[in-house]
Amino acid sequence: MKLAVVGGTGLIGSQVVGKLNEAGHEAVPHSLSTGVDLLSGKGVDEAVTGADVVINLTNSPTFDEASAGFFRTSMDNLVAASERAGVGHFVILSIVGVDQVPALDYYRAKVLQEDILKAGPVPYSIVRATQFMEFMDATMSWTAEGDTVRLPSTPIQPIAAAEVAGAVADVAVGSPLGGVLNVAGPDVYTLDEIGRLTVTAKGDGRSVVTDDTAGMFAVVEGDALIAPAGARIAPTHYTDWLSRA
């Protein structure tokens, strides 16, 4: 099977390409660095020509209101090119609970991305993942001031990026879902709790203070970011991942 992996050089994309090729498929990575520009349309038709499956793992360069424009233009160009090429399956990666957090510009933009795919002519699958374990340091940096990190008590269910990549690869070589597969790690933590686990494991001298107004996840209500019933639960625990990271 030939698969065009757009965004195939990033954290998830590079692992998806590796897993697919190891399984005997022909997965070709595409990105700005290989001459494919989803916003201008340059190289897009060439990238998807001959592909059985298109996987779109590109991301907006910003998380603000401009992200909606990125996803609209990139999806319009890639879906149209996929239809012209006769692609039989289009896969995107999204976020668990993305449609339950309307206060976040980026989450609304990801919902728009999903809606464009659902309304399009190409059979599709959407993989929604919980927060990546690899992004915890960045999340903490947003609200760090000196020796203090302020984090809300928002429940999250972190998953290792390798296991997200595995789920995307599995879905891509299967029949189109015409819907959503949710994937998540095995444990639920509050964000401030996982922050304390992180600084302790890394010997980081900073203290983590619970602040339910701090950072972008402060606007998340209830268990919106927790995997729903029927989700695929990955095996790696955050504490085990930390010990190896």
Results as ranks from 00 to 15, higher is better:
4 A>Q: 04
4 A>L: 01
6 V>A: 03
9 T>Q: 05
9 T>K: 06
24 G>E: 00
25 H>M: 09
28 V>A: 07
29 P>G: 11
31 S>D: 09
33 S>D: 14
33 S>T: 14
33 S>F: 04
35 G>Y: 08
48 V>M: 02
51 A>S: 15
51 A>Q: 15
53 V>Q: 09
53 V>H: 07
53 V>P: 04
56 N>H: 15
59 N>K: 13
63 F>Q: 15
63 F>L: 15
64 D>F: 10
65 E>H: 07
67 S>T: 11
68 A>F: 12
73 T>C: 06
76 D>M: 13
83 E>H: 09
92 I>V: 12
96 V>H: 01
97 G>E: 01
98 V>P: 04
101 V>N: 02
101 V>P: 00
102 P>A: 07
111 V>K: 01
111 V>M: 01
114 E>V: 06
114 E>H: 01
115 D>E: 15
118 K>M: 03
118 K>S: 00
119 A>R: 12
120 G>Y: 03
122 V>M: 04
123 P>F: 03
123 P>K: 11
126 I>Q: 00
127 V>N: 02
128 R>W: 05
134 E>K: 01
136 M>V: 11
136 M>C: 00
137 D>S: 12
141 S>H: 10
143 T>R: 10
144 A>N: 15
145 E>T: 11
148 T>R: 11
151 L>P: 07
151 L>Y: 09
153 S>G: 14
154 T>F: 03
155 P>T: 12
156 I>W: 05
162 A>E: 10
163 E>M: 09
163 E>L: 09
167 A>Y: 02
168 V>T: 11
168 V>D: 06
171 V>W: 05
173 V>D: 00
173 V>E: 06
179 G>P: 07
182 N>C: 13
183 V>G: 04
194 I>E: 03
196 R>V: 04
198 T>M: 11
200 T>M: 13
202 K>M: 13
204 D>G: 04
204 D>Y: 06
205 G>W: 10
207 S>D: 08
209 V>H: 04
209 V>M: 02
214 A>G: 00
215 G>P: 00
215 G>M: 01
216 M>A: 14
217 F>I: 13
218 A>P: 03
222 G>W: 09
225 L>H: 05
231 A>V: 04
232 R>D: 10
232 R>T: 15
232 R>K: 14
233 I>P: 01
236 T>M: 14
237 H>I: 05
238 Y>G: 03
239 T>L: 01
240 D>I: 00
242 L>D: 03
